[in-house]
Write a protein that binds this DNA or RNA. Structure first.
Lengths: 208, 208
DNA sequence: GAGACACTTGACCGGTCGGTCAAGAGAGGT
DNA sequence: ACCTCTCTTGACCGACCGGTCAAGTGTCTC
């Protein structure tokens, strides 16, 4: 598929359906073990359709990863809009990120995979840097206001992202309950204790 | 290869060499894109040799992952032996884990991959649970002694492991400098600021 | 030197996979 | 009715991959 094709509404719907099914199949079986034939079969179309909408299997995954970043950031942006000061914005961002992680466990698995191959790791690095920069900026502001102690903002932001990613995963990858079959958005329950622990660890560490 | 074969010294050396080369090739190219032929070629032996020492490509990766856990735990155990109280043991364990991560960036990439496929994720879950339980026990002890605030020890332990894993990765996966070519143990420099940030985030969070 | 056993070789096999393409089908516009 | 452009089909292809195996070679023991 060329960079940008003129899609009709029917076309856009097909494309989205392929994206959704691919995400769910990849998450369940792994990227390489899932063949393109498997994806198109699960949607019920011929193989050519896939290559009408996507350049290649790799490019499809790259798009899934990029779209995930876009979705996460917009979720964060919406969440921190109301908060007044940097510290509260940080906390709101943390909560929003956890919510997003729990709601997108499929994508989290793909992110894990992505880090294991250079092609995708490059995409993820760029995305990660953007999110970390966002957070680091908030940390700097909070430091300037004397709300928290100083330090290397980038590293601190990375630590926060780490907690979010991994605590989210505790409920995402540990149990094997990612979307079985069709990608129906079954809102998973967010464990409040987990969220509070994550927030507390980000803000106060072990000393609570 | 059967469960346990009687290996001569030469045999054990061959096996180790295959393990090391496989780890480095997997980390550089990804697990699936790296063929068994590529591995044996890089060692300079015939393909049959691989299947003399390992049951399958999958079983090889499982062994790499299990061995990684063993190595990490023994590194941790050695580090916390001297520390007197639980809190200092925690800190020593954190430092040891970061050192290990930075010294084993190749394996870290494989761990990322492992989470993306059920077969390997199962192995990783077991390993992760062991490490988390170790840490959670220390946290409980520290809480009992009033050294830190209470909470869900398992979740807190997960948060700590998260920080370690990810901050370690900042220097492992972000830059593309994993062992190029033969797996020569080139001790990488550990950034002291990174270690201190990680320790501080684990203990005190953003509030420093 | 003969036998036993650890190890090595590399051609070979069945199967799968990503990707192509010639041939059309649908749908809108005029 | 006819053209155009989006979309769909599915057989087909070349490449490659994990794994096998019959036929060896090296090395130790007695």
């Amino acid at each position: 598929m060329a960079d940008e094709r003129q899609l009709t509404r029917r076309g856009r719907e097909r494309r989205d359906k392929l994206l959704a099914h691919a995400t769910s199949r990849f998450a369940e079986n792994g990227f390489h073990p899932t063949s393109v034939s498997e994806i198109v079969d699960s949607v019920g179309v011929g193989k050519g359709v896939f290559y009408w909408y996507f350049e290649s299997k790799d490019q499809l995954l790259e798009e899934i990863l990029r779209e995930a970043l876009r979705s996460l950031r917009s979720h964060q942006a919406a969440a921190i809009a109301d908060a007044a000061d940097p510290l509260h914005r940080l906390e709101a961002g943390i909560r929003a990120s956890i919510e997003w992680s729990v709601a997108n466990t499929d994508v989290l698995r793909l992110v894990m995979f992505g880090w294991s191959e250079e092609t995708f790791a490059e995409v993820l690095r760029k995305g990660r840097d953007i999110v970390v920069t966002d957070t680091a900026r908030l940390i700097e502001q909070a430091v300037d206001l004397g709300q928290i102690m100083g330090g290397n903002p980038t590293m601190m932001a990375n630590a926060i992202r780490a907690i979010i990613d991994e605590l989210g995963r505790e409920y995402a990858l540990s149990t094997r309950n990612h979307a079985t079959g069709s990608p129906s958005g079954d809102a998973p329950p967010v464990d409040p204790e987990m969220v509070e622990t994550a927030v507390r660890m980000c803000l106060h560490g072990l000393h609570g």
